[in-house]
């Protein structure tokens, strides 16, 4: 399963996108702000980054 980092501060849009990607067999790490996003980047090996 491919890992995706999703950085999005809008709660509804983030929820929908995360759910949609997961339905399409992606593993999603959701960062709700920039700092959290950088933390994920430091820790994980990711396939793609959605920085919204």
């Amino acid at each position: 399963m491919k890992n995706i980092l999703l950085a999005e501060d809008d709660l509804d849009f983030g929820t929908m996108l995360k759910q949609y990607l997961e339905l399409n067999k992606f593993s999603v790490s959701w960062a709700k702000d920039g700092n959290e996003g950088f933390e994920f980047l430091r820790m994980a090996i990711l396939t793609s980054v959605f920085w919204m």
Partner: peptide
């Protein structure tokens, strides 16, 4: 753009075959 994209995603999710029949989603 943000609410419109959210609406678009919500519609895609509802019509997605993966979510079909999943009441929670």
């Amino acid at each position: 753009k943000t609410p419109l994209s959210t609406l678009s995603l919500a519609t895609k999710t509802l019509t997605s075959e993966h979510a079909n029949g999943n009441k929670e989603i």
